[in-house]
Design a protein around this nucleic acid. Structure first.
Length: 137
DNA sequence: GCCAACGTTGGC
DNA sequence: GCCAACGTTGGC
């Protein structure tokens, strides 16, 4: 399976990029949406994900990598929901804001915008490359 | 099985 | 603070 790309949302009040960097590795759990959970189950070790700050900032701030996949959510007493572990890779050269993404004609169908409530979204390889190029100017 | 009411998320 | 988009719940 070739590498996939994701976007993981977090409110920086609750868990920010800096928190992930400070911890070195974070568990992505507490997801209670079937579509997002399906994305979590599809993730493989080595996949990469944009780390997006919702509510405050509303921008992609960094890149994380999936360090452990296919875990059971430790916060779910019934053990039915999925979780993964992520590690920070690097901060983006420049954060890419939601505003930029929405205004960008190269990103017409990005799941972040189309399914704005989804906490774990799919990013296509094309979208990944484009957002990186925007970040790096 | 349908649908209205309600709750949650997240942008504005 | 409001609203749109969805998901879930419960009455029928």
């Amino acid at each position: 399976m070739s590498k996939r790309y994701w976007l993981m949302k977090s409110e920086p009040d609750a868990y920010s990029w800096d928190d992930l960097v400070a911890e070195g590795e974070g568990t992505w759990d507490g997801v209670r949406n079937h579509r997002a959970a399906k994305n979590l189950r599809t993730m493989q070790v080595g996949d990469e994900a944009f780390f997006y700050h919702s509510n405050i900032g509303k921008e992609i701030v960094g890149i994380a990598t999936i360090s452990q996949a296919g875990l059971t959510d430790p916060t779910d007493p019934e053990g039915k929901w999925a979780a993964v572990k992520v590690r920070p890779v690097r901060k983006l050269a420049n954060p890419v804001t939601l505003k930029q993404i929405k205004a960008d004609p190269s990103l017409p169908d990005i799941e972040l915008v189309k399914l704005s409530r989804l906490s774990v979204a799919v990013i296509t390889p094309e979208e990944w490359a484009h957002i990186l190029s925007v970040s790096e100017g």
